[in-house]
Write a protein that binds this DNA or RNA. Structure first.
Lengths: 149, 149
DNA sequence: TTTAAATATTACAACATTAAGATAATCGAT
DNA sequence: ATCGATTATCTTAATGTTGTAATATTTAAA
């Protein structure tokens, strides 16, 4: 720990702080979403379909960074709640679309503004300028981390 | 989405970027640790015990943000690999210490520098100055997010 | 002494991944 | 044009990691 270069120690510290920060925000994000009886992945599906319209299951998975197996599981749960439905694609019979039901649309329209407001409060530890800077830096960091994929 | 305040939109964007950045780094962190046949939580236990010495299981849990049930599971796994051992506390018979075995110590001493070097590379998307700024901002953000607990 | 709090384990449920498979589309060589 | 191989999409089953709730034991406190 002590014979590491300054550069390495700096990177290590940043990674620890990044992880803790993410966990803290994620925990509050989860609690906010739980008020509406959903877990974050479920909310993310509704949110994605609301803003992008019906999508092939594989596209939903790419967007949420979930594997195909997990998407099947999520969709089964959301269909049981009648918030989302599967719809066969007429052009390509391998494809199944995920689509909001009317109930799902109503639900996300109710939830979204309230949850967004809560997130605004959670992130209010940084001023507008600081948030802009943080966004730029994190984007840069993420891009580089993804290169090594 | 469109009738949100600028402030809210800014916060939302930051949260999306933060999450993506964290996921990208976490994914590479995981791959780096996997080279040594461990998962991140296992590595974290070894790392913690190496730098802090033997600790009560409950303390390990607090440090890794894992519940007591999860720690029991982790310890069972690490004991099977003979990297860590349980040791009863003589003063308080409710307490059980987690302690590195000699093999565990050797293992972490080998792994740690290599993994740290990999992390340095993963985070090298930001310059030293940028890393300092990011650390300050994320710490501030995390602190505020934790207040609402 | 009874009560409450702290510690660890157990049993179970939730959410994720991986690997294997079923079916459908596509593409290349004949 | 068609056959065969490859690729894409989704599902299923097995498994791994985590959390939650209930329990047992021990300690501390009233």
């Amino acid at each position: 720990m002590d014979n590491l270069s300054d550069e390495t120690k700096r990177a290590l510290k940043l990674w620890v702080v990044l992880a803790k920060c993410f966990n803290a925000v994620a925990e509050r994000d989860k609690r906010s979403i739980a008020r509406f009886g959903l877990i974050p992945s479920e909310f993310a599906v509704l949110d994605t379909l609301y803003h992008k319209g019906p999508l092939p299951l594989s596209e939903v998975g790419k967007h949420l960074l979930l594997t195909s197996g997990s998407i099947t599981y999520m969709m089964d749960k959301l269909e049981k709640q009648e918030l989302v439905e599967r719809k066969a694609c007429s052009e390509d019979r391998r494809v199944i679309y995920a689509r909001l039901t009317d109930a799902g649309r109503e639900r996300i329209e109710t939830i979204f503004p309230e949850h967004a407001e809560t997130l605004r409060e959670i992130l209010s530890g940084l001023s507008a300028e600081e948030q802009e800077i943080a966004t730029v830096l994190l984007r840069k960091l993420g891009r580089r981390a993804n290169e090594g994929t």
